[in-house]
Amino acid sequence: MKTIYIVAGGPIDQLPDLKAWPAPSLWVGVDRGISSMLSQGIKPNIVFGDFDSVEPSDLDIIKQEDFVVFQYPSEKDDTDLGLAFHWALSKEPETIIIFGNTGGRMDHTMGGIQLLLSHKVLSLFPRTEVRIVDQSNSMTARAAGSYTIRKQQRYKYISFLPMSPVVEGLTLSGFKYPLADKDIALGSTLCISNELISENGHFSFRTGILLVISSTDQDT
Rank of each mutant, 00 (worst) to 15 (best):
V54Q: 05
D66P: 05
T171L: 06
D17S: 14
G41S: 09
Q218L: 15
D217E: 14
V212A: 11
K91Y: 03
S146C: 13
V30A: 03
D183F: 03
P24G: 03
C191W: 02
K76T: 07
K151A: 13
D107F: 10
H202L: 15
M37Q: 06
V7H: 02
T102V: 03
F48K: 07
D17L: 14
C191I: 06
D134S: 04
M37P: 02
P73E: 11
F205W: 10
D17V: 12
K151S: 12
K2F: 12
L170Q: 01
Q64W: 04
L122P: 04
I96H: 03
S74N: 11
V68Y: 10
H119Q: 12
Q152M: 14
I158L: 13
V130P: 00
L116F: 09
W87I: 02
D80R: 07
F99T: 00
P126H: 06
Q40Y: 10
I96M: 02
A180G: 08
R32V: 00
D60A: 13
D13H: 13
T148G: 12
F203N: 02
P24R: 07
V47S: 05
L81F: 08
T3Y: 00
T102R: 06
L81Y: 02
P56W: 07
D13Q: 11
T140N: 09
G112V: 04
K2M: 13
D58H: 15
P93T: 03
V212E: 08
I192N: 11
M106C: 08
A185P: 11
D183L: 07
I184L: 15
A23R: 10
S204T: 14
I62F: 06
I42S: 06
K151Y: 14
F175H: 04
G10S: 08
K2R: 15
L186H: 09
D52H: 06
T216L: 12
L210M: 11
I192L: 15
G201R: 01
P165D: 12
T148F: 14
L26S: 06
I158K: 01
M139A: 11
S136K: 09
Q14P: 00
G169K: 07
R142I: 00
I96S: 01
V7I: 13
P11S: 09
I209C: 10
I61Q: 12
P11G: 10
F203G: 01
T220K: 11
G33Y: 00
E168R: 13
P11Q: 09
R150S: 13
G208T: 01
I113H: 04
P93N: 10
